[in-house]
């Protein structure tokens, strides 16, 4: 798994590539926490490079969503591959997270208040 973050216009984008499962979940959580602790409260998770997400990976996103909601922040997912989208659908997580096609569309969701 590879995680890279960059700062955008009013949001921070985190790109997760590879597999987000029980093995990589703690590393992903630590990386996301570092970004939040540095002051980011609006996150875009770019999952276009994510090949697989397990229940453990979904729980990392759940923890993040709760953490950001306490800070009046927001998390938007983008670039979901079909297999990953299916896991989100089965687990009902699409009802929790706003999903955008790509980063540009995700950015718009932060501008609309």
């Amino acid at each position: 798994m590879d995680i890279q973050s960059k700062t955008g216009n009013g949001f921070t984008s985190i790109a997760i590539k590879g597999r987000l499962d029980a093995v990589t979940a703690s590393a992903a959580e630590a990386a996301i926490n570092r970004t939040i602790d540095s002051g980011a409260s609006n996150l875009v998770l770019d999952l276009s490079g994510l090949d697989y997400v397990s229940s453990a990976g979904l729980r990392v996103l759940l923890v993040t969503a709760k953490k950001l909601s306490r800070q009046n922040g927001k998390i938007v997912l983008c670039g979901l591959q079909n297999t990953v989208r299916e896991v989100f659908t089965i687990s009902g997580f699409l009802s929790i997270f706003p999903v955008a096609a790509d980063e540009a569309e995700a950015e718009k969701s932060f501008q609309i208040k």
Partner: peptide
Amino acid sequence: QLKINRNLAVNFDGYE
């Protein structure tokens, strides 16, 4: 595990 996650998602607004 995904079934547990689904229930956590359904009750998402109920816990902090």
